[in-house]
Every structure is written in C-alpha cells, then in structure tokens.
Design a binder for these strands. Structure first.
Length: 827
RNA sequence: GCGAGCGUGGCGGAACGGUAGACGCGUCGGGUUUAGGUCCCGGUGUCCGCAAGGACGUGGGGGUUCGACUCCCCCCGCUCGCACCA
C-alpha cells in the first residue's frame, strides 16, 4: 500500500467483503450483560438506486450504532425494504412486466449500494414487506384489529385519486392533491376498510408527553395539529317546523345568546328533509350539486366567498327560545363535529363574513373594551370583523357580566341540567382508510359470505397470497385482484358455502406500522417474539425524513398502542428518540430525473469512495438542516482523508519524508485529549459537522508535529490512534485500514472507544482579553489557573489598556479568569 | 390568517451571555514540479492607512447587562407546517 496516496476503491471493496463474511455488525442475542441499543433508520422504498437523501440519512444513522458498539453496547441496527406500493405497478404497466420483478431488482441494486457504503447493518435479519413470510403477519395483525372492531368496513365519502384510481387516506391528501401523483383528489361515496385510529386520539395526544424533548417540537406540533383536539359543548337545537332535534358542536357555548342563524353542511341529511316539497327545494338542490362538483381545493380555499342558501326553516335556540333561520352553506363541513353549527357572526369571522354577505343580524354578546379595559358602546353595525377574544358577557340574560371562561362552564352545566347539551371534545383526526384498489399490496384477509357476512380468513390459512395469474395492473377503480377467479371464488370457512374474497389490498403504511418489531428476530411462528421485543424495543434512535411526521410516525404510534392493549408489547410508544435529517436539494429544488439535476450517490462513491461520500454530506451542515448539493464539494474532505492517511502512516512507521521525532510535545497530547472529549460529545449530540471539523484540527496538529519534529514516537502514535478511533464511526473504511497500519489485528469497529484525561484537556496557556468598557484593547497569554488579582494588575499594566483609558479613572473591574478582564470607566 | 423555525464573510457554516467568522470551499501570493495537476507554506469580513494602528461589522429599531450573534420587545424578509375544524 502506497503511504503517500490512499486508494479508496480497492480498500473499500476489500473491507466491505470482509465485514460481511465475518458478520461484524450482527446483534448478539445471547449476550445479556452489555446494554442494548436499537438504532433504526426508516427503511427505504425500492424505487431505484439509493438517492442523495438516503446517503445523508443512512450516513448519519450509522454514526450512533457504530459509536455505541465501540462504547461496549450490544447494538441492533437492521435494514429491510418497504416494498409494496404503487410505483411498482406503474413501472410494471409501462414495461409490461410484473411489479414483483421491478421491485426485487431495485432491492438488489439498493442492497449492493448499502454494501458499498459500508453501513453497519445486521444483514441476518433483513426482510421485505412484500415477502409472504412478512405480509402473512400483516394479515394476522389485521385480523386481530378486526376481531376487536378496530378494523371495519363502512360507506362514507372518501378521497378518490382519479389518476391512480384508488382511494386515499386523509393523511395522503396534500392540499387537495394526491400525495403520490399530485392529481386533484375527488370525493366519492364508497364502502371501504378503516382502522379506528380515532379511538386512540386522546392517548396519541397524551403520550406525546414522554416524547417531549426526544422528538423535535416540529413533529410533535404537527401531530398535535393533525389530531386537532377542541373542547367545547354539544348543544341541541329543535327545528320549529318539524320538532326534530339537531345537534351542533361549539367551542364557544358562552356565545349562545349571539347565535343569529344556524348552518347545516350541504350534505347534512336534515337539509334535504327540511326543503323537501317546499319552495326552497330547487335552489337548495342546485346549490348542493354545485358544491359537490367542486374539488376539495376549491371548496377549502379560505379566500373565496362563502356561499349558502336559506332552507325556509327555523330552529329554537335552547338558551333563549329564539327562532333563528336555518341555512345550508359550503363553509360548514359534514366531516367535522356534527356537520351543523350555530352561527355567531359577532364573534366568529366565518359567520361574520356570511352574515354580511346575506344581510343577517350581527349581535354582540361579549363586551368589547379599549386596551385599558374601559368598555366601549356596542355597535354591531360598524363592525368590520368578528371579535373572537375574551371579555365579559352582555346581552346574555342571566349570564351578563360573567367572564368568558366562567360563562362557558356555567352555560354548559345549565344545558346539561336541562338535558339540552353537554360538554364535548372533538377531534379533527378521522379514521384511517386502509383499503386500496390496487394489486401490489397486502391482500385484506377477509371473505364475504352471503350467509355469514364478513368472515376472517382462519390464521392457519394465512398468508392470503397475491394471485399470480393477474396480468393487467392498470388501475380501473376496482382492484386487479378481482380479475382472478381462482383468487375470488372460495368457500366460506364458517359455513362451507360459496363465498368471495375481499379483493382490496392494504395501504402500504400498514406494512410499515410494525416492521420495527419484526427486526428483533424473524420468528417463523409469530409476527414477533414478545421476549425479544421486550429486550430490544422501544427503538432508542430512529432516523428518517420529516415527511413522515404525521403519516408513518402517527400510524406506528397507533399500532403499538393497539398491540399494547392486545397484551403483545409492554410499552406504548415505539420510538424513544427521533432524529430527522434535512432534505438534499440541488440549486434549491428537489433532485429528480425530470429536472435533470439528479446526483447519484454511486457517482460520488465511484469518484471519491464511500468514506468521502459519507463525510461530505455530513460535513455540509447540521444534520437536521437542508443541504444544497450545489454548495457542496467533496474535494475538501477528500484532501483531508489523504492528509489523515499520510499522517497516520508516518506516525505509525516513521516512513515518509517528515522530520524525525524530537522531545515530548505536550501541546499535541493535549490536542488529542481535547479532541477526544469534544468529538465524543459532538457525535452523541448528532453534531457531525463540528465533529468532523475538530478531527480536521487534530489531523492538522498531528501533521504539523510530524513535519516540525515535535512529539515523541509514543505521543505521535497515541494521537494517530485517537484520530483513527474517533473517525471510525464517520469513515469506516479508511479507519479500518489505518487501524492495521497502526499494528492492530482486529477490527477498529470493535475497538474500545477512547477516553480522555481531564487533566490533559486543559490548554497550556489561555489568551486573556483585556477590555475597556467592553471593547477589546489588548490580549495577553496567561496560565489557565491564573488568579483574579494577578489578572487585574496585568490588565492595568498593559500599555494599550492605559492608552485606551487615557487617564480616566476605573470605576469597576470585571474579572472572569482566565479569559477576560473588563475595565469599566465611570459615566 | 394561525403555529414553528431561520436571517452571521464571495459560499457551506462555527461561536457555555465573555477574542465574531472555527473547519472547509473558493480565491490571491509563494514554494516544489520541464509543465499541468497533486502536495506544502502564507494571506483572505468591510473601510482608512506604507505601516503601526484605528473605525465599523452577525436583517432593521429599541431594551436588559460591565459585556449581546446569543436574552426580552417591536418591525422587515425568508422557509416549513396547518389552513373555512365551528
């Protein structure tokens, strides 16, 4: 091996093969003494080769397991593939192949790139969610949910992607567009399978307390908003004309006396009944049809005018017996609350806009005040916007004068006493729609029997395999599975009569909601071994993109809570700590083939090697920040790795042209120890960019000592060893090779992480800043343990300080040994 | 509109309330080399100055402090998330 020039290609290939052969990174199930760490990266979808986002995520995700292994932990760091999904079908349609072919080819490609990158995976427990050995257990879990009523089928208006010809979960609709293909999503009334995640809304919210500080505030806030808990009251109104009750949900029961009209969602069943056969029927019908034709985006656009029609009916306000008109309007949503509201235009902006447009009464029931609390006269006519804030009640009969919070409590209690309402909590979260009309997914293990109804496929008949005889994967709105008679036509497991199989497949987010449990051991007889799960879970460090903030991360939390209730796992949260890497973009835009700005990790590896590829992306900036590849160059770290190579080789063997050793160099020793302390600290806090910069400083310091003939042979070797060990989690290949250069025979990745001597982390001397009135006027070198008095007199002795003082008396002296003296003059 | 975050050299970015700009890119100068590249050394926030030195400087304005990139208030700009949720 050339000591002047490091050749990554040859070295990396050698070690990648050796590590794999030795199973170097396997978790040890038999060892019960070492503390266990479960480090997990969000598994990839095999859409091609790994992209730059993967390079960043997996490079960062590999640091902690490598560090912890060296610190003596028993580490589980697994990998697999989230391999069901739509792109496989689209590729199959385009190429005329089977989705499976495309998927498994891509998995092979990605696996090879992972090996080249040298990520420390335990390859003995890898799997794909599209393997029958895996999806059998996805089906098994579905049946456990179904038995408990947590998986159910119902007809409801659902999100329909006209391009992909399948339904979508609410979480997969982004601003009214399909998450996958960006097509405008439509609403359709369909019978679909749901998971009852709403039953866990409160617990999903409550348990976030234990994730506080361990997950980013951003993700926690997003989940909190998505679950969207509101407290208030449900209040029963009565239709004057028919006597029928109609319920509303409100967060402001204190404003009940300000309700001047009543609004139903256009789809509310009562609306249809109220207008039937009357003079308003035609207008209402026309209105509703127009609303239904609108896409989600149009309807939800906040800028556009609210529209509605009067239904010719009235309701009785339960608090004051007033009759108020009933309207249907597009700003009231059928899915939220009860699909009906009491409108209080004076104190709700939406109601206000609607009232102004249609000339409806605005009545103030909260006393407005000036900034200093002085009441101002009520003047609803001149209002230009609603007044949603706090205050005391007016125009509210017996409740006048009460502050808002108290009024809410009192009015709610009184409604309850009279049987006209009750305190209520509402969530924005909807049940999770899990069925898909597509081929490449996990079949739902249900049989529809004309005599017995829905029947679960018995456990011993799992897995329900995807039919192999399906050839047309084009989306047609009905699952392609329905085209296989052999798949569909079955006998009922309960009565033996003719029956049909469910042909929808599951959302792929079901597959990924429990995969982390399966990695604890590929149990042939169960989804997972509870003892092993208890030993490894929850995941100590979960690394992945923030784009899953509410999809995968919410669903997985829900799954684990259900499994906890089923007695299958002893914990209620799957991921103790979450780390989200930023995005990798190019000139500010997402990288993509169509934009032509794609940079592929394999291209970087070909040119510079895997170590440099990993270091480059981690050095580019804080791990959680976005990286613009246009701003990044691997040249700097490539040069640095060459410097590391030469310095360690020289320190190890004395080869090379550098000067011979001289006496002891305490400065080098101290630098090595300080770097040990700081890099350990940085890595544990995921500050990879600053860890790398400190390792560069150590490399430069060692190189200088070698060139200038400073330091004993032992000191140089120690500094070189530390450099190699500290760099090992970031650049596994070159460090493995250098570890041998230093005379070791076993892997650096199983070597003990270095300690530092606190005594030796002290600097030899410190620069002390001398300030006059906060401005730096001089700098002096002092010993780290210099005394306060000594500093004070040194400062006053400085000619530059005296010049700056210009004879003015010193009123105060601030001394911060050993770093700073500030002389404050009067005034 | 609501919520969160961020504004530091030509660029990516460093800075427990205590030397602003670590480290790297780029660039300029020098050395090695037949040359190019590599490698090595040095300079590189702005302005004034031959220099010594000085003034200014972390989006803008105010405040707290002996001392503010850092803490507080207001404003401007950008990014992300949610967005008619009653």
């Amino acid at each position: 091996m050339d000591v002047d020039r490091y050749d990554p290609q040859q070295v990396e290939a050698k070690w990648a093969a050796a590590w794999e052969e030795q199973g170097l990174y396997r978790a040890d199930e038999s060892d019960t003494t070492r503390p266990r760490i479960y480090a997990l990266d969000m598994f990839p979808y095999p859409s091609g080769d790994l992209h730059m986002g993967h390079l960043e995520a997996f490079s960062g995700g590999d640091v902690i397991p490598r560090l912890k292994r060296m610190q003596g932990h028993n580490v589980l760091h697994p990998i697999g593939w989230d391999s069901f999904g739509l792109p496989a079908e689209n590729a199959a349609i385009k190429r005329g192949t089977h989705p499976k072919t495309w998927t498994y080819q891509n998995i092979d490609t990605q696996r090879a790139t992972f090996h080249r990158l040298g990520i420390s995976f335990d390859w003995s427990r890898t799997f794909n969610t599209s393997d029958p050995d895996y999806y059998r257990w996805t089906q098994w879990l579905f049946l456990r949910f179904w038995e408990r009523g947590l998986a159910y089928r119902k007809a409801s208006p659902v999100n329909w992607c006209p391009n992909d010809q399948t339904v979508l979960a609410n979480e997969q609709v982004i601003n009214g567009h399909c998450e996958r293909c960006d097509a405008l999503v439509e609403k359709r009334e369909l019978t679909q399978w749901f998971f009852k995640i709403t039953a866990y809304a409160q617990r999903l919210l409550d348990d976030m307390a234990e994730l506080e500080g361990r997950w980013s505030d951003k993700v926690l806030t997003m989940q909190r908003n998505w679950i969207g808990r509101s407290t208030g009251a449900e209040v029963d109104f009565t239709v004057v004309e028919t006597g029928a009750p109609v319920r509303v949900f409100t967060t402001r029961p204190d404003t009940l006396f300000g309700a001047t009209f009543f609004v139903l969602a256009p789809e509310h069943p009562l609306a249809e009944r109220l207008v039937a056969g009357g003079p308003h029927e035609a207008a209402f019908r026309a209105f509703r049809e127009r609303v239904e034709r609108e896409t989600e985006v149009e309807r939800l656009s906040a800028e556009r005018d609210k529209e509605g029609v009067f239904l010719g009916a009235h309701v009785v306000n339960p608090v004051n017996g007033e009759h108020i008109p009933v309207w249907a309007a597009d700003y009231v949503l059928t899915e939220y609350g009860t699909g009906a509201i009491m409108a209080v235009p004076a104190h709700d902006q939406r109601d206000f806009e609607f009232a102004r447009k249609y000339g409806l009464e605005v009545r103030m029931v909260i006393q407005p005040t000036t900034d200093d609390g002085t009441p101002v006269p009520l003047d609803p006519e001149s209002m230009t916007e609603a007044m949603p804030g706090d205050g005391r009640l007016v125009n509210s009969g017996p409740y006048d004068g009460l502050p808002v919070p108290e009024a809410i409590a009192r009015i709610t209690a009184d409604l309850e006493t009279r049987g006209q309402g009750s305190a209520a909590i509402n969530f924005r979260l909807r049940d999770w729609l899990v069925s898909r009309q597509r081929y490449w997914g996990c079949p739902i293990p249900i049989i529809h029997c004309p005599a017995c109804g829905e029947v679960g496929v018995p456990d011993d008949q799992l897995p329900v395999l995807l039919p192999e005889d399906v050839t047309d994967f084009k989306p047609k709105g009905v699952s392609p599975l329905a085209t296989s008679a052999r798949f569909v036509e079955v006998t009922c497991p309960t009565c033996g009569g003719p029956a049909t199989r469910e042909t929808d497949t599951m959302d792929t987010f079901v597959d990924s909601s429990w995969y982390f449990l399966r990695y604890t051991g590929l149990d042939p007889d169960r989804p997972f071994d509870p003892d092993r799960v208890a030993a490894w879970m929850p995941v100590d460090q979960y690394t992945g993109g923030i784009e899953h903030a509410i999809l995968h991360l919410l669903y997985s939390r829900f799954f684990v809570k259900v499994l906890h209730d089923l007695g299958m796992v002893p914990f209620t949260e799957p991921f103790s700590n979450l780390l989200n890497q930023g995005m990798v973009v190019m000139h500010g835009a997402a990288m993509s083939k169509s934009r032509g700005n794609l940079v592929e990790p394999t291209a970087i590896i070909d040119q510079y090697g895997a170590d440099v590829a990993r270091l480059t992306i981690l050095f580019a900036g804080p791990f959680e920040d976005d990286v613009d590849w246009a701003d990044v160059s691997p040249e700097g770290v490539a040069r640095w790795i060459q410097r590391v190579w030469r310095a360690v080789n020289t320190a190890a063997g004395g080869q090379g042209a550098e000067a011979a050793e001289a006496g002891s160099d305490l400065g080098l020793v101290r630098l090595a120890h300080r770097t040990t302390r700081d890099v350990t600290d940085d890595l544990e806090r995921f500050r990879f960019n600053t860890a790398i910069s400190k390792l560069m400083v150590l490399t430069n310091g060692l190189g200088e000592a070698l060139r200038n003939g400073r330091g004993s042979a032992a000191e140089r070797r120690d500094a070189a060893s530390r450099l190699v060990l500290l760099l090992a989690p970031l650049a596994p290949f070159v460090t493995e090779e250098l570890w041998r250069v230093l005379g070791n025979t076993s892997s650096v990745h199983l070597a003990r992480w270095p300690d530092h001597d606190p005594e030796l982390t002290r600097a030899e001397s410190v620069t002390c800043v001398l300030q006059v009135d906060g401005k730096v006027r001089d700098r002096i070198e002092v010993e780290p343990e210099v005394g306060e008095e000594e500093l004070r007199s040194a400062a006053l002795a400085s000619a530059k300080v005296q010049a700056a003082l210009a004879g003015r008396p010193v009123a105060r002296v601030v001394v911060v040994p050993p770093k700073l003296v500030n002389l404050v003059t009067g005034a």
